[in-house]
C-alpha cells in the first residue's frame, strides 16, 4: 500500500500537539526557572532566529535549487522595517507581532521582484544578480539618513525573547513543512532537477519561482525582525558579504532541501561560532576550512534532502539488512 502523506491523521495531530507542549514547557523551564545561564539562553535565541533564516534560504537555495545570495538584503529589509515601526509607531510589545509581520511582508514584496531575474538567468549569473541586490540594499541603507545611514538604527525596543523566537520558528517550520509537501513543493523540486521538463509537464515555472522567492523572503524577513529586536540595534554592516556567507554555511552544513537540516545547520554553526569565539578573528579561518571539509566529505550537507523520518527509515533498513548477515557469521 502507499504511504498517505497528504492527510494528517488524528494520531499525528496528537503527536504534534505533544511535541508543541513539550517545547513550550521546556522553554518555560529554561527561562523562568533559570535552569540555564542567560548567555546560553541568548545562544538558544540566536539558534532559533538563524534557523528561521536558514529555512528561508533553504526554500530557494535548497528546494528550488537556485543559488541566490539575496538573503542579506531580505534580512535587512525585515530588520529595518520592523525596527522602524516599533521604534516610532508600535512602541508597545503587544504590537510586536504587527511589526514582525510588516517587516516580513515588506521583504516578501521585494522577494517577488527579486524572483523576476530568475526567469531568464540562472547559475552564476543569477548568483551575481542576487548578490547585487543584497549589496544595493546595504548601499542604500548606508546612505539613507532617516534610518541612521551607516550608523543604523539604535535603541530599538528589545521585544525579542525566547518565546517569540521559538513561536516564530514553529510557525516557520509549520509553513515550510506544509508548503514543501504540497504541489508547490513538489514543483520546486522538479524545477531543481530539470526546469525545462517541469515546464513541459505543465508546471508554471515562473509562478513557482515567484512564490518560492516570496515565501523565502518572508521567512528571512521574520528572522531579520527578530534579530533587530534582540540586539536593540541594527546597522548596514550586519548585512554584507560575511553575513551572506554565514547564511550559506548554515544551509549547506545542515543540508539543502531539509527542514531538520536547516535547524541542525543553524544550531551547529551557532555553537561552533560560540566555541570559536575565543579564537576571535581566527574563527573565520577555522570556519572557512570547516566549510571546505563539510563540502568535501558531505557535499549534500548532513541532512541533504532528508527529514528525520527518512533518516529513521534508512537506519531501520540498515539494521534489517544487517541481521541476516550476522546470522551467517554466527553459523
Amino acid at each position: 500500500m502507499t504511504k498517505k502523506n497528504y492527510s494528517t491523521g488524528k494520531n499525528e495531530f496528537l503527536w504534534q500537539l505533544a511535541i508543541l507542549l513539550a517545547i513550550t514547557l521546556t522553554l518555560i523551564a529554561l527561562k523562568e526557572m533559570r535552569l540555564v545561564s542567560t548567555s546560553f539562553l541568548l545562544i538558544l535565541q540566536y539558534i532559533g532566529i538563524y534557523a528561521i533564516l536558514t529555512l528561508g534560504i533553504n526554500i530557494v537555495n535548497g528546494y528550488l535549487g537556485v543559488f541566490s545570495l539575496a538573503h542579506a538584503g531580505f534580512m535587512a529589509i525585515g530588520a529595518y522595517v520592523s525596527a522602524y515601526l516599533s521604534k516610532y509607531f508600535f512602541t508597545d510589545i503587544t504590537m510586536f507581532a504587527v511589526s514582525i509581520m510588516a517587516g516580513a511582508i515588506a521583504a516578501l514584496l521585494v522577494g517577488i521582484l527579486v524572483a523576476i531575474p530568475s526567469f531568464k538567468t540562472k547559475g552564476d549569473y543569477l548568483a551575481i544578480i542576487t548578490l547585487g541586490f543584497s549589496l544595493i540594499v546595504q548601499s542604500l541603507l548606508q546612505n539613507a539618513r532617516f534610518v541612521g545611514a551607516s550608523k543604523g538604527l539604535n535603541n530599538i525596543p528589545k521585544f525579542t525573547n525566547i518565546y517569540w523566537v521559538f513561536g516564530c520558528l514553529l510557525f516557520a517550520v509549520f509553513i515550510t513543512n506544509r508548503f514543501v509537501r504540497s504541489k508547490y513543493g513538489r514543483s520546486m523540486q522538479a524545477i531543481r532537477e530539470d526546469e525545462t521538463a517541469s515546464n513541459l509537464v505543465s508546471v508554471d515555472v515562473r509562478k513557482i519561482k515567484t512564490i518560492a522567492f516570496a515565501l523565502s523572503a518572508f521567512l528571512i524577513g521574520i528572522s531579520g525582525a527578530l534579530i533587530g529586536h534582540l540586539l536593540g540595534y541594527t546597522s548596514p554592516s550586519a548585512y554584507g558579504f560575511v553575513n551572506i556567507v554565514d547564511g550559506l554555511v548554515m544551509v549547506y552544513l545542515g543540508g539543502t532541501g531539509s527542514i531538520v537540516g536547516s535547524i541542525f545547520g543553524s544550531a551547529a554553526w551557532q555553537l561552533i561560532v560560540q566555541l570559536l569565539k575565543q579564537l576571535d578573528t581566527w574563527r573565520w579561518v577555522v570556519g572557512g576550512i570547516l566549510l571546505i571539509f563539510v563540502m568535501v566529505f558531505l557535499p549534500k550537507g548532513v541532512f541533504g534532502n532528508m527529514e528525520l523520518d527518512d533518516l529513521f527509515r534508512i537506519i531501520k533498513e540498515k539494521i534489517n539488512r544487517k541481521e541476516p548477515g550476522r546470522g551467517i557469521r554466527n553459523g
Partner: peptide, 24 residues
C-alpha cells in the same frame, strides 16, 4: 575532490577557502 559533487558544493567550498585565506 568535489569533481563529482553538485556544482554548488564547489562554489561553497571556494567561498570557505576565500574566507579562510582572507582572515588568515
Amino acid at each position: 575532490p568535489l569533481k563529482n559533487a553538485p556544482k554548488i558544493a564547489v562554489v561553497v567550498s571556494s567561498v570557505g577557502a576565500g574566507m579562510a585565506i582572507q582572515y588568515l
